[in-house]
Nucleic acid binder design. Structure first.
Lengths: 329, 329
DNA sequence: CATAAAAATAACAACGTTGTTATAAAATAT
DNA sequence: ATATTTTATAACAACGTTGTTATTTTTATG
């Protein structure tokens, strides 16, 4: 027997409509009775019935997040952070691990107020629903019909290169997945190469392909890095996983970090703090990314402006213990 | 303007209660009118309102799955499979990535019909809700108040050892995370050791600790495996990730697989098919695991028997290309 | 051809809320 | 003291379904 506002009304000796107002903190009910009602509601263990509310309000205050195919830790962290960010708002979040279509159906069934979509490299034509959508990543899309939140990868690389250069490094390698269709990866490499050029540094021999995005790919790439005739004094790892691989390999080869070689990782997630050596990193902090996404979808829902545009967030460089001045040679 | 049963009624020229019955395929309405109603409903693009249904039915036909802290690919695959398994049923699944408590609150708010909980090593006392629960994994709990679905790890190892032994292997190593509090891992090692004993094989020098569960841990452990004076001809990898690491390391050292060394991996997920060399593996196929979990929660919901018990599922050995007869020595 | 029985449909009260309108009580002005 | 405004509470109609009961229509029966 769940307790309803009618039950509360009986106990508190008022009408159920008054209870409803009291629970919604309406100014139409006297402060004293409001308090009394709230108290008895609590005592009786009242839990509002979402379905009933939804039926009249037409709002669910629920956002659906379409979780892409199983992904790397960075995305998982982002999901967690988004979920947390929603806790500050009246909205809750539910997840679906299905395909875009099935997930959309489920979410429509639930009548979610909005959806967050993690775009895959090739954005499957998101059927033009009349439901607010915000996408994360892949801003290649020229004329999106919904806002896209993305990180400014170009700027990340500029900051990373600039930072290392200021520390005296001239041979700065980029180790990441290069030979790919993946726009995200390509943007990073391009950013790196542009930055190197601007700083008047040689990039040709220092762009190293991991041919993959896993830890292991970073690990094995270190061989290539070290065998290069143009041995770098600093390395930019293309992702959290890759950088972890690099770090391990470097450690195993007894390199002093950061004395002998500096390492900076792309991605800015809390886990960077707890790597073997806490890693200096560059990227939009997930927390900010999450907040921005949450903010965007809520704005999209609550105002009906058609603000379909790409938001490029600026990264921040977080200094930890894997970068130091270039070794004297 | 969403279309309701009343709208359909008007168009079809019947009462809305008849429409309701027709849509629910009730025998109380004539076949002909039923067809007509169904047709107009479709034409008008009718979508039932879950909230309204829920309000009167008291059932949501939704299951909440509490997604544990960021996990390995095997668990992610399980989640995907569970989601798929629900597609065959009237139920849908939603996910929460929050802590047990917050997730439970969200799910209660949605009035889910049941919950699936991935138990963590130390099952946080799942507050005794009056909502059906089914847990996956960790059957250490002596007197659970809800069914627990788990794999029979002991038997997995028996099968693996038996299989390899039959192929002529006598030096069979187990490479996994051993020195841990993790019950799951411990059960695997114990299973291996018991099996070895039963087969009269030496296990002492062949139980190798990876000290971790990552790809890399398997990769590095191979050194230990090879440096052992008692070099094994077959290796049982403790998990998908670990086995992948082992496989890579073995490949890099130019071992012929399975001619020179056999490898069998714990876990039975489709991804085993697409490793560098398709891997022979032992474990309860995720699909079956998923189906069993889905079945258990639905049964729990639909019958009110108090069947709180541990279900240990039996593993199957899937032969692929990493195991072969022991090399003649 | 009435009449009872069966079959098909319609009417209506739930479900637990919210929001609007009506009424009662209290406060203020005349 | 009475009329008038203000404030507080109560009543009630939605919302879109389902399930039960009431009514109509059809079919079978004597």
């Amino acid at each position: 027997m769940t307790v309803t506002i009618k039950d509360i009304a009986k106990v508190a000796g008022v009408s159920y409509s008054t209870v409803s107002k009291a629970l919604n903190d309406s100014p139409l009910v006297k402060e004293m009775t409001k308090r009394k009602i709230l108290r008895t509601a609590k005592e009786m263990g009242y839990e509002p019935n979402l379905a009933a509310k939804q039926l009249v309000r037409k709002k669910t205050e629920v956002i659906g997040l379409i979780w892409p195919t199983i992904e790397r830790i960075v995305l998982a962290t982002l999901v967690t952070n988004i979920s947390k960010a929603f806790e500050e708002t009246p909205y809750s979040m539910i997840l679906s691990v299905d395909t875009h279509e099935t997930a959309m159906d489920t979410f429509k069934k639930f009548q979610v107020d909005g959806m967050i979509v993690f775009e895959e490299t090739n954005s499957t034509a998101i059927t033009q629903e009349n439901i607010p959508i915000v996408a994360y990543g892949v801003s290649g899309n020229a004329e999106p019909s919904y806002p896209i939140i993305d990180a400014n990868h170009e700027d990340s690389m500029h900051q990373a290169v600039g930072y290392l250069h200021k520390l005296g490094h001239e041979k700065i390698a980029y180790v990441g997945h290069i030979d790919t269709e993946d726009t995200l990866q390509l943007e990073k490499v391009e950013g790196y190469q542009n930055a190197m050029e601007q700083h008047g540094l040689d990039k040709e021999t220092l762009t190293i392909d991991t041919a993959g995005l896993d830890w292991f790919d970073g690990y094995t790439a270190v061989e290539k890095v070290l065998s290069s005739k143009n041995k770098p004094t600093a390395v930019i790892g293309g992702s959290y996983d890759i950088s972890n691989g690099i770090l391990r390999a470097l450690q195993e080869k007894d390199f002093q970090i950061p004395e002998e070689i500096s390492l900076i990782s792309y991605d800015n997630i809390p886990q960077m703090e707890t790597t073997e050596i806490p890693m200096t990193c560059i990227g939009v902090p997930v927390q900010i990314l999450a907040e921005e996404i949450v903010h965007a979808i809520i704005k999209r829902i609550e105002t009906d402006e058609e603000t379909a545009q790409v938001h490029k967030l600026f990264p921040t460089l977080t200094e930890r213990h894997t970068c130091g001045p270039a070794p004297a040679h």
